[in-house]
Each structure stands twice: as structure tokens, then as C-alpha cells.
Write a protein that binds this DNA or RNA. Structure first.
Lengths: 265, 265
DNA sequence: CGTTTGCTTGAAGTAGGTCAATGTGAGTGG
DNA sequence: CCACTCACATTGACCTACTTCAAGCAAACG
């Protein structure tokens, strides 16, 4: 797993996937970023009711967003993969509505709340980028909700695995059909809205059918194409549209309505 | 229903719910906003595959986001109420993933894509506001997904009605427990992930229990408190946290990390 | 080792879906 | 005015995809 080490900062490393950052942008982010720190598996990242604390990059490890109900059940609404930006959904609220916890050991780089105002003022392109990231999150969540609401159990499970694979592939180009799934069957159930025991029966059936191979915690999807047809999977993780972004500062854009053509992935 | 007519523009009218806009901000928005136009019930607002077209305010009427699958079923992922901003979820993608269509006759005010760059550059506070709006959308969607994934049919339906009522109340302060639900039972089913016929049976049961009164298309929730307990409803539509926003331009903020204390709702 | 955490499998129950039929306004054309 | 249609609500009978409950294993871990 190669890291792009041109950047010392986590956030700029993440953001540079979408636009190539200027020196100034990198410098700013780096200056703002607080010290990264480790979190062990199971430790909270954001607890319900916490005052909003800016955003953070999950430099290493996995995290999840959980919603828990009074009867003790909890549901996994979102999986954060290494490199992803957490906390974007929270910045509009004064207090967190959902719990974020580490799914594996990992490292977090906070970008503090007080950095956001200067970011929007001095680096408008980064502001636009954050907005766009939030919108991609929302699209992914729509797909998930759509799966929860209208697929049968088998397709929900297929869809969740496919989508996980696709997102892993974004970070890890050339990833094949084999990947790590650091979730117990109970947790998979919480993610797809099924009982762990039905998840078990489905997985077993998939294995017996030759649809997948499992060597815990690795899954291999043997019939990905077929699955993608089954649940009408569309990979929405390729394209971010950056063409509407303002140019980076120092490139002479004055704020007129003229659209200079920025870079596209 | 009173309208705040200090503002001629739809978008500035909407945004001024959250921060009080400066003259300059209003002026800019107004200048950018294209002509509003009418759309009849059932007409598309955004079609799947459309190139992204900026954002728009639903000045009047209701709209919905639908996901349709090959077998002809479709699902309602989001309801837009009068005054809400549409298209925020799409701006990060070059093409739309979901369909937006008018649920009733209504009026739309587009804010074109080419207005976004100058907005982020010259009016950073508005950029932050858009980001925050997107994040609130995402929180609402999380609640919806959570309901789809973990509640039984009865609570899904209760939750959906409660949440609709709460959101209507934001725009229409003092709205009681009676409100218009311009959806057929089929459509309610599409929204909560149930068959129309089961929706019918549940509604009937609610009426028989004295939980609700229905005078099509008006619903009255007679046992709102009880319902809110049943499905652990939390009203997440009150608070937008604007305290991290940059100050409006012309208020002397230079972009340093200093946090001037902006207005809070 | 014993304990815990997670996987596996079966038997039984039920929430909610499917199918089918009937009823009821709200247009629309004559 | 009536007849026809069309979209929507209503209701019952049946069925199944999932859950719940219960029990036995395997692997990890103090």
C-alpha cells in the first residue's frame, strides 16, 4: 500500500485526490492541523451529544457511524475507510446526533473547528471541495437507504459488499475481488438491517453456491458481475465534479462569474 | 402563511433563516438567480444522468427524490418542502444519480452553477452556509436510513409522519398536529419501504385506535407524544450551528485563525 | 485451561408481502 | 344528466422471508 508522501498533512493528502493543491493551500492546512493521535478499536471518535469539533481525517484504520436505540440495538449507517474525512455530516449541527467509533485500531488527524472560517475565507476552493465531499457522502447514503428500503435480504448483503469493495478500490487502485472485511456477522447485520443469524445463512449459501470465498476476515467475490446485475449496482465513487470550483487563490480569478476551467480527475 | 418579503430573492429568503444576510450578500444572490418558473405535479426537476445544474430553491410546492429500479418500483428518499434548497446532494457529482420530481404543482428558483465559484470566493460565509445545509440534509437522511433499517412497520410510518410534521413546523411556526400530506398510500409506502396495502392497514389501525384522524389529504396526530416515545423521535431540525462560520465580508475578518463570534439562532 | 466472542445450524413463529376482489369519488365525454 | 374510466382506498385469504429462540462449536485470550 503506497502512500503519497509529497504531503506531510493528512487532510491535504486526502484532498489532493480531487484537485492538485497549491503550496499555499497545503501550507495552510498543515499549519492548522492538530497532532494526529491513535485510537484503539472500539474507542469513540464522536459521542452522541458531543459539541461539534471540526472535521478529521481517518489516516489509518476503519471507523463506523452507529445509531443506537433504547432497546440496545444499534445500526451501522456509514463505514469510514482509511483516508476518508469524518465529521462533515456534523458541522451543521451544534451537537452530534450519531456515534462514531473505531472499527479497528487507527489514527486520526483532527482539523479543528477554528480552522474552518479561515479556510472558507482564504481558500474558497477548499471550501467548495468540502461541500462536494459532503454531497458525495450524501449520495452514498442515499444508495444505502435505497438498499435498506427496497431490496430483499440477499441483495442488501450483496450490495453492501459490492459498495465496500468499490470504495476500497478508490483508495487502493487495482484492488481485485478480494478484500478485508473487519466486521463480525453481527456487525454486518447491523449494517444491512438483518439479523446476524440470517446474515450467516446467506453467507453460507453464497459460499455453497460458489459466489464468494471467505478466509476470515477476507472475502473474495467470485461472481461480482452477476451480483452487480442482481442489485443494479452503480459505482458512484469514481467521479467528483470539480469543474464548478473556484480557481485556487493566486490564479487571478477575481470572483466574476467567469468560469475558468479547473482540473478534473 | 406569512412570507418574509424583505427579500426579493428565493435563495436569500431561505438562507436568511439561518444568518442575517448583509446587503452585499443579498445583492449578489439576487443578481445571480435566474428566473423562477413553474412546474406542474409529476414533472421532472432533475432526471437521472442529467448534468449537474447548480442548486435551486423550491419556492412553492413539494418535490421528492426518487430512486427507481429496473422492475418498475421506485422509492422516495427525500421530500422537499416549500422553501428548501434542492440539488445540494448533486453538486459533487457530474451527473445526477437520482430523480427529483414535483409532488405537487410548484415554483422553482434556480441558482446557476456558474454562480457557485463567485459565491465561494466573494461570500465565504454563504459557502459555509451551503456546506452546513448539506450536512443537515445528511443528518436527516441518516435518521431516515436508521428508521428503514431497524424499525418495524408501524414505527417506520409513525416516524415518517412525525418527521414530516416537524419539518413543516420549521417553515410554518406554530403548526399544530394537523397538516397536509400530499401523498397517496402507494407513495407513503414508497417512502417508508412498505406495501401500499400494509400502509393502508396500519393507517386504518391508527384511526381505529384513535391515534390519528384523516380527512384526506389532511392528517391529525392525536397522540404525538406517545408516538415520539414509540420511535424515539428526536427533532433534529431546530439547530443549525452557525458559530463556526466566517464573518460576512466587510466585517473586518482577515482570515486569521481568530474566531469572531458570529450570530447564533 | 476456562471464558468470552463469534460462527453455525435447526425448529418454530410472525410480520409483512402477494394476490384478488370490491368500493369510491373525480374527471370526461356523450 | 348519466355512463365510463381511472386512480386510489379498502379488506380478506393465503403465503414466505425473515426473526426469534435454543443449542452446540471453534477460535481467541485472559
Amino acid at each position: 500500500m503506497l502512500m503519497n508522501d509529497d504531503y506531510q498533512s493528512c487532510l491535504s493528502s486526502r484532498l489532493s485526490r480531487f484537485v492538485s493543491l497549491t503550496q499555499a493551500e497545503c501550507g495552510f492546512i498543515q499549519e492548522m492541523e492538530k497532532d494526529e493521535h491513535q485510537r484503539r478499536k472500539g474507542r469513540p471518535v464522536i459521542s452522541v451529544g458531543d459539541a461539534t469539533e471540526g472535521i478529521m481525517v481517518l489516516k489509518a484504520g476503519w471507523a463506523v457511524v452507529k445509531a443506537d436505540s433504547a432497546d440496545g440495538r444499534s445500526q451501522i449507517l456509514r463505514v469510514y475507510l482509511p483516508g476518508e474525512v469524518m465529521g462533515l455530516a456534523e458541522i451543521g449541527s451544534s451537537h452530534a446526533n450519531h456515534r462514531v467509533i473505531m472499527q479497528t485500531d487507527g489514527t486520526i488527524c483532527p482539523f479543528p473547528r477554528r480552522g474552518l472560517a479561515p479556510l472558507f475565507i482564504d481558500y474558497p476552493r477548499l471550501g467548495a471541495l468540502l461541500t462536494a465531499l459532503g454531497s458525495l457522502d450524501q449520495i452514498a447514503l442515499r444508495h444505502h437507504a435505497s438498499s435498506l428500503g427496497s431490496m430483499d435480504a440477499s441483495n442488501k448483503l450483496k450490495f453492501w459488499l459490492l459498495q465496500l469493495r468499490s470504495r476500497l478500490e478508490v483508495a487502493n487502485v487495482g484492488l481485485g475481488n478480494r478484500f478485508r472485511v473487519p466486521f463480525s456477522q453481527v456487525e454486518i447485520g447491523q449494517a444491512v438491517g438483518l439479523t446476524s443469524i440470517y446474515v450467516n445463512k446467506l453467507l453460507r449459501k453464497f459460499v455453497d453456491n460458489g459466489d464468494i470465498e471467505i478466509e476470515r476476515p477476507y472475502f473474495r467475490l467470485l461472481k461480482r458481475d452477476e451480483w452487480e446485475k442482481d442489485c443494479e449496482f452503480v459505482n458512484a465513487f469514481h467521479d467528483m465534479d470539480t469543474s464548478w470550483f473556484p480557481s485556487a487563490i493566486g490564479e487571478g480569478t477575481t470572483g466574476s462569474a467567469d468560469l475558468s476551467a479547473p482540473l478534473r480527475a
